[in-house]
Simulated scan of single mutants.
Amino acid sequence: MKNKSLLALVPLLILGIGCSSVSEPPVAGSVPAKKTAKKPAAKAPATAAASKKPVASANPTATYAIDSGPSSIKVEPNLPAFRAEPLMPPADVPPPQPGAVAAPAVPVNPTTPLASVPAPKYLVEDAAIPSGTPPAVLALVTEADRSRSSGDLDAAVVVMERALRIDARNPTLTYKLAQLRLKQNKPQLAEELAGKAALLAGGNLDLKRKSWILIAEARNMQQNPQGAKEAKAKAESFFGH
């Protein structure tokens, strides 16, 4: 009896299996769906974090980029190069005439300001060495005159002082040394030496007159016009003797 019931169930099972294996026909106008293979989901990197925390820098004075914004500096075009114009002479100075000769510059002691050097007012004359002067003194006087002519007044003074050490009471040597001191712009020393020469001159009235003229010029350089006039009057007193 059991075998008959099993045999009756077998056809039913076969029929059910066949119906489930039959697929539904495709609908007209529809596109069959493509089967896509599912890809495994990508794993998020372990290093990614939901929110990143700023890493503390080893340098406490960290710098940050600052947006300077639009620049307000206006770039100017290149300026034209300036051309140097020749200097024009002052309007009150007349142009030099053709063939004119420029006046020579007057040498002035560089150590003395121009305002403190007065113009020469009294003519200081030279004096000749008298006869009977020792040859050694004559040689020194010649060397001193040569140095003075070349403009080396210091060397001329040194040589003349050597000559005076040989013949200390020679009034002409003293007078010539006073001349050198006057040229060195040392009027006080020149006045003292010229006064000494006038005393040593004795009966040599010409040398006395020249010595007092030199004293007048030395006082003029020391801004003493009254003393210069008195010395000039003293010098004129020796004329006609």
Rank of each mutant, 00 (worst) to 15 (best):
K2R: 13
K2C: 05
N3W: 09
N3F: 13
N3H: 13
N3C: 06
L9W: 07
P11C: 11
L12C: 09
I17D: 04
S23I: 05
E24P: 03
E24Q: 13
P25R: 04
P26N: 10
A28P: 13
A28H: 12
V31A: 13
A33D: 12
A33Q: 15
T36I: 15
K39G: 06
P45V: 01
T47M: 01
A48W: 09
A50Y: 07
K52F: 09
V55E: 10
A58Y: 00
A58R: 10
P60D: 06
P60I: 07
Y64A: 11
D67L: 02
D67M: 00
S68I: 05
S71K: 10
V75L: 14
P77W: 04
L79A: 15
L79M: 09
A84S: 14
E85M: 11
P86D: 08
P86F: 04
A91K: 14
A91T: 12
D92N: 14
D92H: 11
Q97E: 14
Q97F: 09
G99F: 03
A100L: 06
A100F: 05
A102C: 06
A103Q: 09
P104F: 03
A105F: 07
P107Y: 02
V108Q: 14
V108C: 08
N109M: 03
N109L: 01
P110H: 05
T112F: 09
T112K: 15
A115F: 06
A115N: 11
A119E: 14
P120V: 05
L123Y: 10
V124F: 03
E125W: 00
A127D: 00
A128H: 04
I129F: 01
P130W: 01
G132D: 12
T133Q: 06
P135R: 08
L138D: 06
A139I: 04
A139G: 10
V141T: 07
S147Y: 15
S149V: 10
S150K: 12
S150W: 00
G151T: 06
G151W: 02
G151K: 08
D154H: 08
V159H: 03
V159G: 03
R162F: 01
R169H: 09
L173K: 04
T174R: 14
T174H: 01
L177Q: 07
A178T: 03
Q179I: 11
Q179E: 14
R181I: 01
R181H: 12
P187D: 02
L189G: 14
E191L: 07
E191H: 10
E191D: 14
E192M: 11
L193P: 01
G195I: 02
A197M: 08
A197H: 07
A197Y: 07
A198Q: 06
L200H: 04
A201L: 01
G202Y: 05
G203I: 00
L205V: 09
D206G: 13
D206F: 01
K208D: 02
K210Y: 05
K210H: 02
S211F: 04
W212R: 09
A218K: 01
N220H: 14
Q222V: 03
Q226I: 11
Q226L: 11
Q226W: 01
K229R: 14
A233E: 15
E236G: 07
E236V: 05
S237T: 12
